[in-house]
Simulated assay, not measured.
Amino acid sequence: MPGLCSGNADEAVAALSTRYRPHRLLLSNQTAGLDFRHHAITSGAASLNLLHYGPELIVDAGTFDSFYMLEFPLGGGVDVRYGDQRVSSRVGSGLVLSPGAYVRSTWRADTTQVMLRLDRGFVEQAWQRYTGETTRRTPVFQAELDLQTPAGRRIARLIGLMAAEQIEAGSAVLSPMPLVHAVLDTLFDQVPVTPVATVEAAMAGPLPAHVRGFRRLLDDPRQLPATVTELARRLDVSPRTLTTGMRRFTGLSPHEYLTMRRMEHARKLLDRGGMSIARVAESVGYAHAGRFAASFRAYCGVNPSRLAGQGDF
Protein backbone atom coordinates (compact mmCIF):
# COMPACT_ATOMS: atom_id res chain seq x y z
CA MET A 1 0.00 0.00 0.00
CA PRO A 2 1.19 3.61 -0.53
CA GLY A 3 2.71 5.18 2.54
CA LEU A 4 5.40 7.37 4.06
CA CYS A 5 8.99 6.36 4.73
CA SER A 6 11.46 8.67 6.48
CA GLY A 7 14.59 8.75 8.60
CA ASN A 8 13.64 12.12 10.12
CA ALA A 9 11.95 12.15 13.54
CA ASP A 10 10.29 15.54 12.96
CA GLU A 11 8.72 14.27 9.74
CA ALA A 12 7.45 11.17 11.55
CA VAL A 13 5.88 13.24 14.33
CA ALA A 14 4.29 15.66 11.85
CA ALA A 15 2.87 12.83 9.75
CA LEU A 16 1.23 11.03 12.67
CA SER A 17 0.12 14.03 14.74
CA THR A 18 -2.88 14.62 12.50
CA ARG A 19 -3.84 10.94 12.24
CA TYR A 20 -3.51 10.26 15.94
CA ARG A 21 -2.72 13.24 18.19
CA PRO A 22 0.24 15.58 18.95
CA HIS A 23 2.98 13.58 20.63
CA ARG A 24 6.70 13.37 21.29
CA LEU A 25 9.27 10.81 20.15
CA LEU A 26 12.13 10.10 22.56
CA LEU A 27 14.90 7.92 21.14
CA SER A 28 16.71 5.73 23.66
CA ASN A 29 19.87 6.08 21.59
CA GLN A 30 20.14 9.52 19.99
CA THR A 31 22.62 8.22 17.41
CA ALA A 32 20.32 5.43 16.25
CA GLY A 33 18.88 5.98 12.80
CA LEU A 34 15.10 6.15 12.47
CA ASP A 35 13.49 3.78 9.96
CA PHE A 36 9.96 5.22 10.02
CA ARG A 37 7.29 3.59 7.87
CA HIS A 38 3.57 4.30 7.96
CA HIS A 39 0.87 2.91 5.66
CA ALA A 40 -2.85 3.59 6.13
CA ILE A 41 -6.20 2.39 4.83
CA THR A 42 -8.77 5.00 5.82
CA SER A 43 -12.55 5.06 5.62
CA GLY A 44 -14.72 7.41 7.65
CA ALA A 45 -14.48 6.63 11.36
CA ALA A 46 -11.84 3.92 11.00
CA SER A 47 -8.30 3.60 9.74
CA LEU A 48 -6.07 0.53 9.54
CA ASN A 49 -2.39 1.38 9.93
CA LEU A 50 0.96 -0.38 9.62
CA LEU A 51 3.59 1.43 11.69
CA HIS A 52 7.32 0.87 12.18
CA TYR A 53 10.00 3.09 13.76
CA GLY A 54 13.16 0.92 13.84
CA PRO A 55 15.17 1.70 16.99
CA GLU A 56 13.88 1.47 20.55
CA LEU A 57 12.03 4.67 21.45
CA ILE A 58 9.29 6.19 23.56
CA VAL A 59 6.09 7.64 22.13
CA ASP A 60 4.68 10.12 24.67
CA ALA A 61 1.10 10.51 23.41
CA GLY A 62 -0.43 12.30 26.39
CA THR A 63 -4.09 11.66 27.20
CA PHE A 64 -6.22 9.85 24.64
CA ASP A 65 -9.49 11.74 24.24
CA SER A 66 -10.92 11.28 20.75
CA PHE A 67 -10.25 7.70 19.60
CA TYR A 68 -9.70 4.04 20.43
CA MET A 69 -6.61 2.16 19.28
CA LEU A 70 -6.24 -1.59 18.78
CA GLU A 71 -2.54 -2.50 18.49
CA PHE A 72 -1.05 -5.83 17.41
CA PRO A 73 2.74 -6.30 16.97
CA LEU A 74 3.89 -8.31 13.97
CA GLY A 75 7.42 -8.19 15.40
CA GLY A 76 8.95 -6.87 18.61
CA GLY A 77 6.58 -5.49 21.23
CA VAL A 78 5.45 -2.44 23.18
CA ASP A 79 5.35 -1.64 26.92
CA VAL A 80 2.73 0.98 27.77
CA ARG A 81 2.03 3.19 30.72
CA TYR A 82 -1.76 3.32 30.41
CA GLY A 83 -3.28 5.56 33.03
CA ASP A 84 -2.29 3.92 36.32
CA GLN A 85 -1.66 0.54 34.64
CA ARG A 86 1.41 -1.02 33.03
CA VAL A 87 0.43 -3.16 30.04
CA SER A 88 2.42 -4.87 27.29
CA SER A 89 1.99 -6.42 23.87
CA ARG A 90 4.11 -8.82 21.85
CA VAL A 91 3.67 -11.16 18.90
CA GLY A 92 0.57 -13.17 19.78
CA SER A 93 -1.00 -10.52 21.99
CA GLY A 94 -2.32 -7.01 21.55
CA LEU A 95 -3.78 -3.99 23.28
CA VAL A 96 -7.15 -2.27 23.19
CA LEU A 97 -6.56 1.31 24.35
CA SER A 98 -9.70 3.29 25.24
CA PRO A 99 -10.10 7.08 25.57
CA GLY A 100 -9.52 8.70 28.93
CA ALA A 101 -6.07 7.43 29.94
CA TYR A 102 -2.56 8.87 29.72
CA VAL A 103 -0.53 6.81 27.21
CA ARG A 104 3.26 6.56 27.07
CA SER A 105 4.56 3.69 24.93
CA THR A 106 8.04 2.17 24.83
CA TRP A 107 8.57 0.50 21.46
CA ARG A 108 11.20 -2.23 21.49
CA ALA A 109 13.74 -2.25 18.68
CA ASP A 110 12.45 -3.40 15.29
CA THR A 111 8.78 -3.40 16.32
CA THR A 112 6.15 -3.35 13.58
CA GLN A 113 2.50 -2.98 14.54
CA VAL A 114 -0.88 -3.25 12.87
CA MET A 115 -3.09 -0.58 14.48
CA LEU A 116 -6.84 -0.07 14.05
CA ARG A 117 -7.91 3.46 14.99
CA LEU A 118 -11.62 4.02 15.71
CA ASP A 119 -13.22 7.39 16.35
CA ARG A 120 -14.54 7.69 19.89
CA GLY A 121 -17.98 8.94 18.79
CA PHE A 122 -18.37 6.04 16.36
CA VAL A 123 -17.65 3.46 19.09
CA GLU A 124 -19.90 5.21 21.61
CA GLN A 125 -22.80 5.23 19.16
CA ALA A 126 -22.24 1.56 18.32
CA TRP A 127 -22.22 0.75 22.05
CA GLN A 128 -25.47 2.67 22.50
CA ARG A 129 -27.11 0.64 19.72
CA TYR A 130 -25.70 -2.60 21.15
CA THR A 131 -27.01 -1.95 24.67
CA GLY A 132 -30.20 -0.13 23.73
CA GLU A 133 -29.43 2.56 26.32
CA THR A 134 -30.91 6.01 25.86
CA THR A 135 -27.83 7.75 27.31
CA ARG A 136 -24.60 7.76 25.35
CA ARG A 137 -21.71 6.25 27.32
CA THR A 138 -18.02 5.49 26.74
CA PRO A 139 -17.05 1.79 26.85
CA VAL A 140 -13.63 1.21 28.43
CA PHE A 141 -12.21 -2.19 27.48
CA GLN A 142 -9.78 -4.46 29.26
CA ALA A 143 -6.48 -3.35 27.75
CA GLU A 144 -4.59 -6.59 27.12
CA LEU A 145 -5.92 -9.04 24.51
CA ASP A 146 -4.52 -12.56 24.02
CA LEU A 147 -4.75 -13.50 20.35
CA GLN A 148 -5.03 -17.17 21.29
CA THR A 149 -8.47 -16.59 22.80
CA PRO A 150 -11.58 -16.88 20.58
CA ALA A 151 -12.03 -13.08 20.67
CA GLY A 152 -8.38 -12.44 19.85
CA ARG A 153 -8.32 -14.93 16.98
CA ARG A 154 -11.50 -13.49 15.46
CA ILE A 155 -10.32 -9.88 15.68
CA ALA A 156 -6.96 -10.82 14.14
CA ARG A 157 -8.72 -12.58 11.24
CA LEU A 158 -11.04 -9.62 10.64
CA ILE A 159 -8.18 -7.11 10.59
CA GLY A 160 -6.16 -9.35 8.28
CA LEU A 161 -9.16 -9.58 5.96
CA MET A 162 -9.50 -5.76 5.85
CA ALA A 163 -5.93 -5.46 4.58
CA ALA A 164 -6.14 -8.43 2.20
CA GLU A 165 -9.33 -7.21 0.52
CA GLN A 166 -7.92 -3.76 -0.11
CA ILE A 167 -4.63 -5.09 -1.45
CA GLU A 168 -6.50 -7.40 -3.83
CA ALA A 169 -8.79 -4.54 -4.92
CA GLY A 170 -5.85 -2.36 -5.94
CA SER A 171 -7.09 1.14 -6.78
CA ALA A 172 -10.77 0.29 -6.35
CA VAL A 173 -12.48 1.87 -3.35
CA LEU A 174 -13.76 -0.61 -0.79
CA SER A 175 -15.45 0.01 2.53
CA PRO A 176 -14.07 -1.90 5.52
CA MET A 177 -17.01 -0.86 7.72
CA PRO A 178 -18.82 -4.26 7.76
CA LEU A 179 -15.59 -5.80 9.06
CA VAL A 180 -15.08 -2.91 11.50
CA HIS A 181 -18.58 -3.49 12.88
CA ALA A 182 -17.74 -7.17 13.27
CA VAL A 183 -14.63 -6.20 15.27
CA LEU A 184 -16.78 -4.02 17.54
CA ASP A 185 -19.38 -6.75 17.99
CA THR A 186 -16.59 -9.10 19.07
CA LEU A 187 -15.22 -6.57 21.53
CA PHE A 188 -18.67 -5.89 22.97
CA ASP A 189 -19.56 -9.61 23.24
CA GLN A 190 -16.28 -11.14 24.41
CA VAL A 191 -13.89 -8.57 25.92
CA PRO A 192 -14.45 -7.29 29.49
CA VAL A 193 -15.77 -3.73 29.28
CA THR A 194 -16.78 -1.06 31.77
CA PRO A 195 -19.02 1.75 30.44
CA VAL A 196 -18.59 5.19 32.01
CA ALA A 197 -20.94 8.13 31.73
CA THR A 198 -18.62 9.83 29.24
CA VAL A 199 -14.91 9.80 28.70
CA GLU A 200 -14.87 13.27 30.26
CA ALA A 201 -16.17 11.72 33.48
CA ALA A 202 -13.26 9.27 33.48
CA MET A 203 -10.83 12.13 32.82
CA ALA A 204 -12.50 14.69 35.09
CA GLY A 205 -10.14 14.37 38.04
CA PRO A 206 -8.47 17.71 38.63
CA LEU A 207 -9.38 19.23 35.26
CA PRO A 208 -11.05 22.64 35.66
CA ALA A 209 -14.49 23.02 34.12
CA HIS A 210 -13.27 25.54 31.53
CA VAL A 211 -10.57 23.12 30.29
CA ARG A 212 -13.11 20.30 29.93
CA GLY A 213 -15.54 22.74 28.33
CA PHE A 214 -12.98 23.96 25.80
CA ARG A 215 -12.19 20.42 24.66
CA ARG A 216 -15.89 19.54 24.55
CA LEU A 217 -16.64 22.56 22.37
CA LEU A 218 -14.07 21.43 19.82
CA ASP A 219 -15.61 17.96 19.57
CA ASP A 220 -18.14 19.77 17.37
CA PRO A 221 -16.56 20.58 13.96
CA ARG A 222 -18.91 23.58 13.64
CA GLN A 223 -16.90 25.31 16.39
CA LEU A 224 -13.54 24.97 14.63
CA PRO A 225 -13.69 28.30 12.73
CA ALA A 226 -13.99 30.21 16.04
CA THR A 227 -10.96 31.97 17.53
CA VAL A 228 -9.55 31.16 20.96
CA THR A 229 -10.87 34.52 22.21
CA GLU A 230 -14.38 33.69 20.99
CA LEU A 231 -14.26 30.23 22.54
CA ALA A 232 -13.03 31.64 25.86
CA ARG A 233 -15.91 34.11 25.83
CA ARG A 234 -18.40 31.27 25.38
CA LEU A 235 -16.87 29.58 28.43
CA ASP A 236 -17.06 32.84 30.40
CA VAL A 237 -13.31 32.95 31.11
CA SER A 238 -10.51 35.17 29.89
CA PRO A 239 -8.10 33.92 27.20
CA ARG A 240 -5.31 34.13 29.78
CA THR A 241 -7.21 31.89 32.23
CA LEU A 242 -7.96 29.42 29.45
CA THR A 243 -4.30 29.40 28.36
CA THR A 244 -3.06 28.84 31.92
CA GLY A 245 -5.47 25.95 32.48
CA MET A 246 -4.81 24.26 29.15
CA ARG A 247 -1.03 24.47 29.52
CA ARG A 248 -1.10 23.21 33.09
CA PHE A 249 -3.48 20.29 32.61
CA THR A 250 -2.93 19.24 28.99
CA GLY A 251 0.52 20.56 28.07
CA LEU A 252 -0.96 22.37 25.05
CA SER A 253 -1.97 25.99 24.61
CA PRO A 254 -5.55 26.66 23.44
CA HIS A 255 -4.20 27.64 20.03
CA GLU A 256 -2.17 24.40 19.76
CA TYR A 257 -5.20 22.32 20.73
CA LEU A 258 -7.45 24.23 18.32
CA THR A 259 -4.93 23.74 15.51
CA MET A 260 -4.74 20.02 16.28
CA ARG A 261 -8.51 19.63 16.04
CA ARG A 262 -8.66 21.76 12.87
CA MET A 263 -6.02 19.64 11.16
CA GLU A 264 -7.65 16.38 12.28
CA HIS A 265 -10.96 17.47 10.76
CA ALA A 266 -9.31 18.86 7.62
CA ARG A 267 -7.55 15.54 7.09
CA LYS A 268 -10.87 13.70 7.35
CA LEU A 269 -12.50 16.05 4.82
CA LEU A 270 -9.60 15.68 2.40
CA ASP A 271 -9.57 11.90 2.78
CA ARG A 272 -13.32 11.82 2.11
CA GLY A 273 -12.94 13.83 -1.09
CA GLY A 274 -15.49 15.98 -2.89
CA MET A 275 -14.39 19.32 -1.40
CA SER A 276 -11.96 21.88 -2.75
CA ILE A 277 -8.98 22.88 -0.63
CA ALA A 278 -10.44 26.38 -0.30
CA ARG A 279 -13.72 24.93 1.03
CA VAL A 280 -11.88 22.69 3.49
CA ALA A 281 -9.81 25.66 4.65
CA GLU A 282 -12.93 27.72 5.23
CA SER A 283 -14.68 24.93 7.12
CA VAL A 284 -11.86 24.77 9.70
CA GLY A 285 -11.40 28.50 10.13
CA TYR A 286 -8.89 29.65 7.49
CA ALA A 287 -9.91 32.56 5.29
CA HIS A 288 -6.96 32.01 2.93
CA ALA A 289 -6.31 28.63 1.31
CA GLY A 290 -2.60 29.40 1.06
CA ARG A 291 -2.29 29.97 4.81
CA PHE A 292 -4.25 26.79 5.47
CA ALA A 293 -1.99 24.83 3.09
CA ALA A 294 1.12 26.08 4.91
CA SER A 295 -0.32 25.11 8.32
CA PHE A 296 -1.45 21.72 7.05
CA ARG A 297 1.96 21.03 5.49
CA ALA A 298 3.75 22.00 8.73
CA TYR A 299 1.41 19.90 10.84
CA CYS A 300 0.90 16.83 8.64
CA GLY A 301 4.11 16.73 6.63
CA VAL A 302 2.30 16.74 3.25
CA ASN A 303 0.56 19.30 1.06
CA PRO A 304 -3.24 19.16 1.16
CA SER A 305 -3.24 18.99 -2.64
CA ARG A 306 -1.76 15.48 -2.37
CA LEU A 307 -4.80 14.32 -0.42
CA ALA A 308 -7.70 16.25 -1.92
CA GLY A 309 -10.03 13.79 -3.55
CA GLN A 310 -7.58 10.93 -3.02
CA GLY A 311 -8.70 9.12 0.13
CA ASP A 312 -6.35 6.39 1.31
CA PHE A 313 -9.14 3.85 1.03
Rank of each mutant, 00 (worst) to 15 (best):
T227V: 04
R272M: 06
V87A: 06
V91I: 08
S88M: 05
D79V: 08
T63V: 12
T134M: 09
T194A: 09
L184G: 05
D110A: 13
E133H: 13
G77V: 00
A169D: 04
E124M: 10
R212A: 14
R262G: 03
I155V: 08
N29A: 11
L158G: 11
G75Y: 02
Q85W: 04
E124S: 12
F122P: 06
R37P: 00
Y20V: 06
S89M: 02
L34W: 05
G44Y: 00
P239E: 07
Y299M: 05
C5W: 10
P22I: 09
T106M: 03
R153K: 15
M263L: 08
P22E: 04
L118Q: 04
G170F: 04
Y299F: 15
G83Y: 01
R261Q: 15
E200C: 02
D110W: 06
R86E: 12
R247F: 03
D65K: 11
D146L: 00
T131E: 07
A204L: 07
I159E: 14
P99E: 03
E71I: 12
H210L: 07
M260Y: 15
P2C: 01
H39N: 11
G311E: 05
G311P: 07
F141L: 02
L70M: 11
V180Q: 08
L70R: 06
V199L: 08
P176T: 05
D65I: 01
L51E: 13
A281M: 03
G311S: 02
M115K: 13
L34G: 07
Q310L: 13
A294Q: 14
L97H: 10
L116Q: 03
V183K: 03
W127N: 07
S93Q: 02
M177G: 02
L270Q: 06
L231N: 05
G273Q: 02
V183I: 10
Q125W: 02
P192G: 12
M260C: 03
V211D: 11
S89A: 12
D110V: 00
L27Q: 11
S283H: 04
P150D: 07
I41K: 10
T135K: 10
D84P: 09
V196Y: 08
F36C: 09
T63F: 01
I167D: 14
R291T: 15
A40K: 11
A182F: 07
D219K: 04
D65M: 04
G170Q: 00
A156W: 14
V114E: 12
P178C: 10
Q166P: 09
P150N: 06
A201R: 14
A201Q: 12
T134H: 10
M162L: 08
N29V: 08
F313E: 08
E168N: 09
G213S: 05
T241Q: 13
L57M: 12
A156F: 07
L179V: 00
V180P: 02
L258A: 04
M69N: 14
L25I: 15
W127M: 05
M115H: 01
Q310M: 10
T138W: 06
W107T: 03
A197F: 05
I58V: 15
H39M: 07
H288V: 06
Y53V: 02
G62A: 03
M275Q: 14
G7W: 04
G7E: 15
A278H: 11
E200F: 14
L224R: 02
Y299W: 13
S283Y: 07
E56N: 06
T194D: 10
D84V: 01
L4S: 09
P304R: 13
L184Y: 10
L147P: 09
R137K: 15
N29T: 09
T244Y: 14
E144W: 04
K268I: 01
